[in-house]
Design a protein around this nucleic acid. Structure first.
Lengths: 334, 334
DNA sequence: ATTAGCAATCGACCAAAAAGAGTGCTAAAA
DNA sequence: TTTTAGCACTCTTTTTGGTCGATTGCTAAT
């Protein structure tokens, strides 16, 4: 356990380092109001914090930098989560009141708002396809060999796909299929469309395989489709000093370029609304030098999409988390 | 006009520079089979090419680098457009044979294939919304206050949107609207949905404004929506030595981050299938240090989407154009 | 328990020197 | 007349050495 003064020192170092991006010296802290000690005293505390693993040095005569353990302690125990200004509150409120027709759009707006307020890069993704229910399934005949299938989920997400047939079908048949498919699928999770259904349809329906097969195949394909990852503020990253290292910048772009990786990260979050992953805590090798904060937006129990912030380990955790918590409250009120 | 030997020298310099990214010295060329002269002779030719503006020096005692005029001459007069290997041909063919249901997907696949073969960053966009015809407009009632509008274009692009009403409507009304709207809009360009139509509908249709207004507004909104820009291989750029300059890398990311800018560039191309813009030839200030090659994919007269390659001015024009030409031919055969 | 003071360490910065690459030009060769 | 060898000159890159300043850890005093 850390004594009170050590906590104050650690907090001051994290905050100072987040601000300046320079290793923090004992001298840099002595002006703080809650640290009225000489530099020598601070130095002794820093040495002990280092021994315990909360701080690191880049070389013998440099100032200290928080270790990942240090950041973690800060996030868990020391962080203020009301670090948000009046202007920010106002700006966010305005943004969130934009009228949207689809939930997807709300996630995008939220993501870009977070990016604008925090100046970090955000990625976002809509609700998880697999967990949603089918609220409505509609087939619309376009011409004798083409039909449009529309799936509307309980979160009002729309997925649509064209289905082509090798033989002509008519309106009557479409109506029947509409009935049959809905019978079986309505209020079911999307992942229901799997083997058992396929068998059922082959068995129970009177249409030829030539008609049924393309429908199931195409619907499955659309559902399996990668969810769209939305990226905002990638260039903000380049204003941060850590991105002056080409190595780091390269890794960063590399991460953002791999949509599947980003998707995985966003999908993998725990049940919490807000999750913080610092450096090595990230599952993905490519993210070991970054910190990621994910924010899962729910209405009731319904997953409405996930937003992630990717930035340097020297991230302003306090600001980001404050903003997210405020947005979370605001969304619940909507 | 350039004499034959000067052409050979210019070509050799461009190719060498594209390969090595280092200013080309007179000595570096003397091993070429079609340049069997001493370095002094080459040097004299280089001096003259420089005086004519085809080459540049970074400082008095450096090798030569092609100027934009030099690249332009190379692209127009010297470039070989069959610079494509058997493996590449095979790889491309395979990729293009992927079955797709929507034209949009074909553009994406083509874009990523080009990126994979050339190792440059590609951006792409579907067919221009405004120029397409409405092949089919369908309204589907979801519940008494919600209707789905589906627009299918002549390139089989599907645009759909949910429309919410303040008062209940019934199946009968939807059918009538289906008829009325189709009557007016079928086989019209999408941009038809503009003021005149609005007036017409208000005048001629018997439904209240409360019903008509949200439909038109929402359809307009969807059509005005930014076309989705698809990005592939952004990280490839960072393997190129010019991106070791942080300045350049930053500009590059900045360009890619501005979807509207990229969209503009892709939409602005001339009537040609393939257009090359070298440095200052780009309309956009932000692209002055890059080269862009756009590739418009058409079937008949129908615009099917545009793909752009963004890279350094020291781009392998020959490779890129060879690949695009091959793909173009291949697509025409499909 | 805290602090003043000081030697020791190490990166950042700078200037000078040395090495290297390439050109332009002149004069000789073809 | 065209081509080439040779060399002085220019400019960049790399290396070297040395100073400066920031910061620490430790010791002894408060």
């Amino acid at each position: 356990m850390l004594n009170d003064r050590k906590k104050r020192v650690l907090q001051a170092i994290v905050e100072e380092y987040v601000n300046t991006a320079e290793p923090v010296s004992s001298k840099a802290l002595i002006d703080r109001e809650n640290l009225q000690y000489s530099s020598a005293t601070i130095r002794n505390e820093m040495a002990e914090l280092e021994k315990k693993g909360y701080l690191e040095k880049t070389h013998t005569s440099s100032g200290r930098v928080p270790s990942e353990k240090g950041y973690r302690y800060y996030v868990d125990e020391l962080l203020k989560d009301d670090n948000i200004s009046l202007e920010e509150v106002k700006y966010i409120s305005e943004k969130l009141e934009t009228k949207v027709n689809e939930i997807d759009e709300l996630t995008k707006i939220t993501a870009s708002t977070i990016s604008e307020v925090t100046h970090y890069t955000t990625v976002s993704i809509g609700p998880r396809t697999n967990e949603q229910l089918i609220k409505e399934l509609k087939f619309v005949l376009i011409n004798p060999t083409m039909m449009l299938a529309i799936i509307i989920t309980n979160t009002d997400m729309i997925k649509e796909t064209i289905i082509k047939f090798e033989e002509d079908i008519n309106e009557k048949q479409v109506e029947t299929m509409n009935y049959m498919f809905n019978q079986k699928l309505k209020n079911q999770p999307l992942k229901t469309i799997d083997r058992p259904l396929e068998e059922y349809l082959y068995d129970e329906m009177s249409y030829s395989v030539k008609v049924i097969k393309p429908i199931i195949e195409q619907i499955k394909r659309v559902l399996a489709q990668d969810d769209q990852v939305y990226l905002k503020g990638a260039n903000n990253a380049f204003d941060l000093p850590e991105f002056n290292s080409l190595e780091v910048a390269k890794n960063f772009i590399n991460v953002l370029d791999q949509k599947e990786l980003v998707e995985d990260v966003l999908q993998s979050g725990l049940a919490e609304d807000i999750n913080v992953y610092i450096g090595e805590e990230n599952q993905k090798e490519e993210l070991k030098d970054f910190s990621v904060i994910t924010f899962r937006h729910k209405i009731g129990n319904k997953d409405m999409g996930t937003i992630g912030i990717i930035g340097p380990k020297r991230m302003d955790y306090s600001k980001v988390i404050s903003v997210m918590k405020y947005i979370n409250k605001k969304l619940k009120d909507l």
